[in-house]
Design a protein around this nucleic acid. Structure first.
Length: 504
RNA sequence: GGCGCAUUCGUCUAGCGGCCCAGGACACCUCCCUCUCAAGGAGGAGAUCACCGGUUCGAAUCCGGUAUGCGCUACCA
């Protein structure tokens, strides 16, 4: 089996798009086939600088390796369509269609096309090219009228009959040829349109399964017609149209919906393994129960038969949950490593992150006042305390900053809780005991402090809350005794004293 | 406007004629655990299977129509 992912380098790849890559990759890996990356950059106006790199980075980050394509090469190189255009690949097939009468040159200027379209819309007719230049005499006249502009090549769609094909997801699809217009194959700049380049390259690269988004379903009949016109009937690939991914408003997911590019998710602190798992479940399922699957599980179980037909809303809450599950499943060393770039705010450590971009939401890192590089040994001690409290890697700075601050900043809520004679009395008593305590293991601290609550006539929740506020500056933190143990005796004593100083 | 596709809890989905007055997951609610927050455990609420008609002893599952939604309708992919 040979599948391909054929993105257009117009920007950072978006999750809907990369889901298509995932499915094509999964199918190739599942069948022991070949996964190809092909770049469809035939629209000069739309290509974005750096987009190709972003696509490759995204694929790499998710672990979707390609067997043929940019950088790795392959028997059908080049894999970049602008380069193939320069080699005359599409020109050749366009000429072949011209010679066999399946295509014709069209000299209609854009203004005329616009006008025709407007008129059709006014009359509530389907907007289609009126096939003006399909007539050789008209064509010649038009050519003389507009000598400057290079002509485009259009496909001569049969005006009668139907075109049918089988989609592996949706079964039989039939369209009346009369509803198809004479679409452009070769643009006046000499570059092919998607329809031509896609069909030609899929054949030349011996693609067996065309796996792509549902938005391509309507143009598949054109592609079928092209295969036939080129005499490639016997080599028709199987078509697999994937259900679309929708935003919360149920419209096709796009940039309007906020964070949708793969690199955005990376920056926000999602794990690639979580994203892969989540994306695989958008339009595919194994059974009625299984949801957590590693990349290996997915490769092993993936099948075209179990791809769904209905468009799916991207459920961010569920992704967040799944990301938390994967974070909890990480080894502590591993988690610490992955947390480092988010803590130090060293963008170059977040793989694939293009160098000098301004920090985005969730990317704050620890305050600049905290020395870099941060102490790894200390971080390793902290990690177990926050592991089950993280949904996103980017949440770490907000959870651990108090561990690192030299001069603790107190939340208003925490400070207010300390401002009562009761609180002062409790803190003073605790401080006195802590000063005599040398063992700062969490067990020892608990053994020391828990009985104190009763002595002071305070509920443990209240008493521990006061200590928490004094030692972390927060009303919410990891468990008190473990936190104090990690902070250590010196910091704890200093902080309790400082808190007393602030409220006395 | 034309063409195409789709329609099961708020969301992702299971279901391919009787096992389903519909199962799982996220989110939500309650309780348990508990020093806060999480995590975890136990429950709960939530879907007249879009609607109408047909086929059948029997339909979420098959057929037809309707409605709604989405996609496509460029010298963009």
């Amino acid at each position: 089996m040979r599948t391909r992912y054929a993105p257009s380098p117009t920007g950072e790849p978006h999750v809907g798009n990369i889901r298509t890559a995932l499915f094509a990759w999964l199918y190739a890996r599942h069948t022991g086939g070949v996964f190809i990356l092909r770049v469809e950059d035939t629209d000069l106006a739309r290509i974005a600088p750096g987009a190709l790199e972003a696509i490759q980075e995204s694929l790499r980050w998710l672990g979707l390796d390609w067997d043929e394509g940019p950088e790795v090469g392959g028997p059908h190189a080049p894999y970049i369509q602008s380069e193939r255009t320069r080699l005359g690949v599409y020109q050749e097939y366009s000429q072949r269609l011209l010679d066999s009468g399946w295509a014709y040159q069209c000299y209609c200027p854009p203004e005329r096309l616009d006008e025709v379209r407007r008129e059709q819309q006014r009359q509530k007719l389907p907007p289609m090219y009126d096939r003006h230049c399909r007539d050789p005499r008209q064509r010649e006249a038009m050519g003389q009228q507009h000598p400057g502009a290079g002509p485009v090549v259009r496909f001569a769609v049969p005006q009668e009959g139907h075109t049918a094909f089988t989609d592996l997801v949706r079964d039989e699809i039939t369209v009346a040829n009369a509803t198809l217009d004479d679409f452009v194959l070769l643009k006046s700049d000499g570059f092919p349109t998607y329809h031509l380049s896609n069909v030609v390259d899929d054949r030349l690269m011996e693609i067996t399964h065309v796996i792509r988004g549902d938005e391509w379903l309507p143009s598949t009949p054109r592609h079928i017609l092209l295969y036939r016109a080129l005499g490639w009937d016997a080599h028709m690939p199987a078509f697999v149209h994937l259900p679309l991914i929708l935003g919360p408003d149920r419209a096709k997911l796009s940039k309007r919906h906020g964070a949708t590019s793969v690199t955005d998710y990376q920056r926000l602190g999602y794990l690639p393994e979580a994203l892969v798992n989540f994306l695989a479940l958008l339009g595919w399922s194994l059974d009625d129960k299984t949801e957590l699957m590693t990349r290996e599980d997915l490769v092993q179980h993936f099948s075209l038969e179990r791809i769904g037909k209905t468009a799916a809303v991207f459920n961010k809450d569920k992704l967040d949950w799944m990301n938390g599950v994967y974070i909890r499943g990480l080894g502590q060393e591993e988690l610490a490593e992955r947390l480092l770039p988010f803590l130090e705010r060293r963008p170059e450590l977040v793989e694939g992150r293009p160098k000098a971009e301004p920090a985005r939401q969730g990317e704050g890192g620890l305050p600049d006042t905290i020395a870099r590089p941060i102490d790894r040994g200390y971080l390793h001690a902290i990690v177990p305390l926050i592991q089950e409290r993280l949904k996103l890697l980017s949440e770490a700075p907000g959870l651990v900053d108090f561990f690192f601050q030299q001069e603790l900043t107190y939340e208003d809520k925490a400070l207010n809780a300390l401002k009562s004679p009761e609180a002062t009395r409790a803190l003073e008593a605790a401080l006195a005991r802590l000063e005599l305590q040398s063992d700062f293991s969490h067990e020892a601290l608990e053994a020391l402090l828990r009985p104190m609550a009763e002595e002071l006539g305070l509920k443990t929740g209240v008493f521990f809350g006061l200590l928490r506020a004094a030692v972390t500056g927060r009303t919410v933190s990891p468990p008190l005794f473990e936190t104090m143990a990690v902070l250590g005796r010196t910091r704890c004593l200093a902080r309790v004293k400082r808190a007393l100083g602030l409220v006395r």
